[in-house]
């Protein structure tokens, strides 16, 4: 095998992993605090991607410039969803949250199908086709930007969780709800904020993905299965795990694509998933 091709596949894999990272970090944050898998993750990502798409098509706002807007909008959407729907109807039962988010994803996907139709949409921006030489690989500029911005945003989020008062409260609620209530933390509000932050990650991810990806009502499913694998691989609830897991999964997909053929790239991911469940079900970063 030619070292150049292999090198290019590695670089492409890492870039791909970077774009998965934000989606996975949002999922792992929600899991870590609420102890549920957010089944609406994929469909909310899809909504955010349509948001970024229409902001460009209708309002001529560049996807990268739309990041702050989409982050705020998706945070608000997540916060309100939790307060108005998920938290209200779950009655404190984790399995109810699970069902509500699952139901939500079905509704969102079908509403999207109704309004946006089933066709895939893509956008073209001036930098869509620009390529950048990166070592042995020639990579599309949007993928490089997506990778770098993903890492920066993950780091910013990690800083927020580690250093701010709200971040401390989020970590406290994640492991000890009763203790949190007794120091006066509004646990329900922290749930809503955490859900909001997890969904805000999707707002940023959508803006970073849309210049190099398509959007359709079912696009979220592609990402949610991958993100779920990443979260399990890294260790449910672990930030560092989600980031490292994303890079590993990106690499896996790219390399198995190289060795098995493009169409079979995802087989590697499923294989990894089975291997984790067999040998280290708590993930890399969880004790």
């Amino acid at each position: 095998m030619d070292a150049t091709i292999l090198g290019a596949a590695v670089i492409n894999g890492l870039l791909l992993g970077g774009s998965y990272a934000l989606v996975a970090v949002g999922l792992t944050l929600i899991y870590g605090v609420l102890h549920i898998i957010n089944f609406a993750h994929g469909s909310l990502l899809m909504l955010a991607m349509y948001g970024a798409y229409y902001l460009l098509v209708k309002a001529h706002i560049d996807p990268y410039a739309a990041i702050p807007l989409m982050v705020v909008a998706m945070f608000a959407a997540g916060y309100v969803l939790y307060r108005g729907l998920i938290g209200r109807f779950s009655h404190g039962k984790d399995e109810n949250i699970l069902l509500i988010t699952l139901g939500l994803s079905i509704v969102l996907e079908n509403v999207a199908l109704f309004f946006f139709k089933g066709d895939s949409q893509t956008i073209t921006v001036s930098y869509s086709d620009r390529m950048v030489a990166l070592g042995p690989a020639l990579v599309p500029l949007p993928k490089l930007v997506s990778f770098a911005a993903s890492l920066v945003l993950c780091a910013a989020l990690a800083w927020f969780i580690a250093r701010t008062e709200t971040g401390r409260a989020i970590r406290a609620v994640a492991k000890e709800r009763q203790g949190a209530r007794l120091v006066g933390i509004d646990v329900e509000k922290i749930f809503a904020v955490s859900y909001g932050i997890g969904i805000a990650c999707l707002g940023a991810a959508a803006c970073l993905l849309i210049p190099s990806f398509y959007v359709s009502p079912s696009v979220g499913n592609l990402f949610v299965i991958v993100a779920f694998t990443i979260v399990v691989l890294g260790g449910m609830g672990s930030f560092a795990g989600a980031l490292v897991g994303a890079l590993i999964i990106g690499l896996t997909e790219s390399l198995s694509g190289l060795f098995l053929g493009e169409a079979l790239g995802q087989i590697g991911i499923s294989l990894i998933f089975i291997l984790i469940l067999l040998f280290r079900p708590t993930g890399i970063f969880n004790k």
């Binding site: 401390r168 409260a169 970590r171 492991k175 009763q178 120091v183 006066g184 933390i185």
Partner: peptide, 21 residues
Amino acid sequence: GRRVFPNLSVRENLELGSYRR
């Protein structure tokens, strides 16, 4: 049963004691 925050440092636990008051 103490209900301290196991995943936070001692200092952070104390700091959260003054989360509101």
